[in-house]
């Protein structure tokens, strides 16, 4: 029982790390109905920018603020160069644009800052402490607290600010929102900037664990089943989906893995997500889509 608990808790905490990446996807999907393929590349770009600036002598807070400013600037450039020409175009065009953006950002990140793996120590020890025989990582708890804080801030932003409400209107219908005088470009710039800030937080936490390197851009693969389970439009869903994916994949690896030959945790969440789609296609917290005919 103790071992089961340890696997479960470890899985839940891993899931929080996936949620951090999934949050960035949700933000952009909420605003534009587009699955932002480039979110992983943004995580890589943000983290690489931070450590590279720090390496060049900037103090930690300076590097953080400068990275944040660069991510905001990047959001403005993306809105101006990539998104604005595609207003009112089919969603598939926007999706393809984000795929192209992925390659641009990955190349830009490695081209500007180099391909060397960089260490990142946030000063939070990634060592366990003992809770009645169950080892819990201090770092994972810290990541969970950060994720909780981000969710609270974003929920308040969407619910109670003018921009947040405008953003929800844009998500429902671009043309209708434009006809009501909602500045679509501004909303998109804001939401991409918010996704950039979330990418920076995710990049710092994942980079601290894995080193800042190209692999940060592929952790998005872990976020996809989280989104399917939690729903593409719900911030709370990203957290709950992350917890479900983290816990289920770890339990499956430990208890089903030996029967199925091991190494199953990469595909198990996708199987779970597919099964979930059959029952609830919009995800746990996603908005039900109704078409009038």
């Amino acid at each position: 029982m103790q071992f089961f608990l340890e696997v479960l808790i470890g899985g839940l905490l891993s899931g929080v790390m996936y949620s951090l990446v999934a949050l960035g996807f949700v933000l952009i999907f909420k605003a534009s109905g587009v699955f932002n393929f480039a979110q992983g590349a943004m995580v890589l770009f943000a983290a690489l920018t931070f450590v590279s600036l720090e390496e060049r002598g900037l103090p930690r807070w300076g590097a953080l603020l400068a990275s944040l400013a660069i991510m905001l600037g990047l959001a403005l450039v993306i809105e101006r160069v990539v998104l604005r020409p595609l207003v009112n175009q089919p969603a598939i065009s926007l999706l393809m644009a984000t795929i192209g953006l992925t390659f641009c950002l990955e190349g830009l990140a490695q081209g500007v800052w180099g391909s060397v793996v960089k260490g990142l120590d946030l000063g939070i020890p990634d060592v366990p402490f003992d809770v009645k025989g169950v080892l819990v990582s201090q770092f994972d708890l810290f990541a969970a607290a950060i994720a909780g804080f981000l969710v609270a801030v974003l929920a308040l932003f969407f619910q109670y600010t003018r921009v947040g409400r405008a953003l929800r209107a844009v998500a429902d219908d671009h043309q209708a929102a434009l006809s009501l005088g909602i500045p679509l470009q501004t909303v998109w710039a804001v939401v991409w900037a918010a996704a950039g800030a979330v990418a920076l937080v995710a990049g710092l936490l994942w980079g601290s664990r894995l080193g800042v390197q190209f692999a940060l851009s592929v952790i998005t693969l872990k976020a996809l089943p989280v989104l399917i389970l939690g729903g593409f439009t719900s911030i709370a869903g990203a957290i709950v989906g992350g917890l479900l994916v983290g816990a289920s994949e770890k339990l499956a690896e430990v208890y089903l893995g030996p029967v199925l030959g091991g190494g199953i945790e990469n595909w198990f969440p996708y199987v779970l997500a597919l099964l979930f789609l059959l029952v609830r296609p919009e995800g746990l917290f996603g908005e039900k889509h109704i078409d009038r005919v």
Binding site: G10, G11, S14, L210, I219, K222, V254, G257, E265, N266
Partner: peptide
């Protein structure tokens, strides 16, 4: 499983 970014379950085992 590649690329090996998360090994929590392996190390618990």
């Amino acid at each position: 499983p590649p690329p090996g970014t998360d090994q929590q379950s392996q190390w618990l085992e």
